[in-house]
């Protein structure tokens, strides 16, 4: 995966916590499957499990792979179920002006790319994509660029990603594979580690 070209969903709310992304009642599972059905459950469904049509999330193309969300996305609980729900729903990139640290790590471990942009850039993206629900955004992970090139907008920004985590995303290698490959370093470290 090096390029993602997709329409976007805008969720203009700050501090979206992982309890909203996946409520605790869905954490009783012992596997990782099916969490997409429960993504934003209490915003998507009423207490009788009927769809809440006024939830803005549902007004965008279901196939969108990019979520544009308000500041401090993924705060609160460490539950990786939030990342599983987002990935299972089909979202591959989340754009925000800030991510909570644990969520960011969880996202990367599930192939979701968290892209941090400036507040001004986030605002511009939100305003445009709230209107333009069929316009694509192009994310190039190798080049670390986010580009929108349409008739009345041009955005081309660089984003940061740690080189190691970038390598993992591009090659599909996982952190656990890396760590297990370096087990000898751990064993050597333990020989002198006192605590």
């Amino acid at each position: 995966m090096d390029k993602i070209i997709s329409t976007a969903i805008v969720l203009d709310r700050d501090n979206i916590d992982t309890d909203q992304i996946i409520p605790a009642k869905f954490l009783k599972s012992t596997n990782k499957e099916g969490f997409g059905d429960w993504l934003f459950y209490n915003w998507r469904y009423d207490e009788n499990d009927n769809s809440k049509d006024d939830f803005e999330f549902l007004k965008y193309q279901k196939e969108s792979k990019i979520l544009i969300a308000g500041n401090n996305f993924g705060c609160g609980s460490s539950r990786e179920h939030a990342a599983w729900a987002i990935a299972d729903y089909g979202i591959e990139v989340v754009i925000s002006s800030q991510f909570a640290d644990i969520f960011k790590g969880n996202a990367l471990n599930n192939g979701i790319v968290p892209i941090t942009v400036s507040e001004a850039c986030l605002k511009a993206l939100m305003q445009y994509f709230e209107r333009e629900k069929s316009c694509p955004i192009e994310i190039d992970i190798e080049e670390q660029t986010l580009m929108v090139d349409a008739k009345d907008i041009f955005i081309n920004v660089q984003f940061d990603i740690d080189p190691l985590k970038k390598k993992f995303i591009l090659t599909g290698m996982t952190e656990i594979e890396y760590l297990v490959q370096h087990q000898e370093d751990v064993i050597n470290f333990e020989k002198t580690h006192e605590l």
């Binding site: 990786e80 644990i102 790590g105 471990n109 996982t174 760590l179």
Partner: peptide, 21 residues
């Protein structure tokens, strides 16, 4: 002391280590 996701729980179980900034 800090909270981690389930992938990291697996990493620590397997390697006693994490990759952290």
């Amino acid at each position: 002391a800090f909270g981690i996701g389930t992938s990291q729980v697996e990493q620590v179980l397997a390697s006693q280590c994490l990759l952290l900034s």
